[in-house]
Simulated assay, not measured.
Amino acid sequence: MKVVLLLLAFVAAVSGQTEPWCRCAAFVTYEHSEVMVYEAPEVIIDSCTDDVKQCKNLCAKELNGLSGDGDLWLITETGITVGQHICSYLADHFIFWITRHKVYGYYEVCGGAWQYTGVESQQALCCDGGKHEHCVNY
């Protein structure tokens, strides 16, 4: 009976495998949690073990390209700032106030742990009622 269960588990694992892939996202970091504020489309890579560096580089390039190297005040093609896109996304998920948080880029290979790309926003993010604001130091 154990052999049959092991065989079924093996078949399920093999049939559930798909092409290797890379995920890329931006997060706001809190003391005990991370909140995803943007996710790029998945990228197909050749190998889950050999293409980790490729995933990291593609992700960093994607995030830097979209944000002007981490500039939250960059005006996007839609006419609003990168920071406003993030504040709007957060407000849509019932997070209306953010005070002085950097936005960081991460990548994930084939379902593994999220890893830091080295991408960081130039400015801290502040959202007031879902509106992107300049952060004021008190």
Rank of each mutant, 00 (worst) to 15 (best):
C127P: 07
S121Y: 00
E42L: 14
E120F: 01
N64L: 02
F94R: 14
D50L: 15
L74E: 11
V52N: 04
P41R: 09
D50Y: 07
C126I: 03
I86Q: 01
C126Q: 00
V82E: 01
S88Y: 03
Y89R: 12
H93S: 09
S88A: 11
R100H: 14
Y38M: 06
E120A: 06
K53G: 06
E120R: 11
L125C: 05
T117K: 03
P41H: 02
I95Q: 12
L74G: 03
W114T: 04
H93F: 04
I75K: 10
I45T: 08
V109L: 05
A124D: 14
D92I: 02
T76W: 07
L63C: 01
G65L: 02
L66K: 03
I95K: 08
G111V: 06
L58D: 07
G118I: 05
N57F: 03
N64M: 11
K61M: 08
D50G: 09
G79E: 06
G70L: 03
S67L: 03
T49L: 14
E133K: 14
S121K: 04
L58W: 02
G79T: 06
Y104G: 04
T76A: 05
I80Q: 15
G105Y: 01
V37E: 07
D71M: 01
A60M: 08
L66M: 12
G105N: 02
Y38F: 12
T117P: 09
G79W: 06
I86C: 02
A113H: 14
A113P: 10
D46R: 12
G129C: 11
E62T: 15
E77C: 03
E31R: 07
Y116L: 14
C59N: 05
Y106G: 01
G112A: 13
W114C: 02
G129T: 04
V119P: 01
G111N: 11
C127W: 00
G129W: 10
G112N: 10
E34F: 13
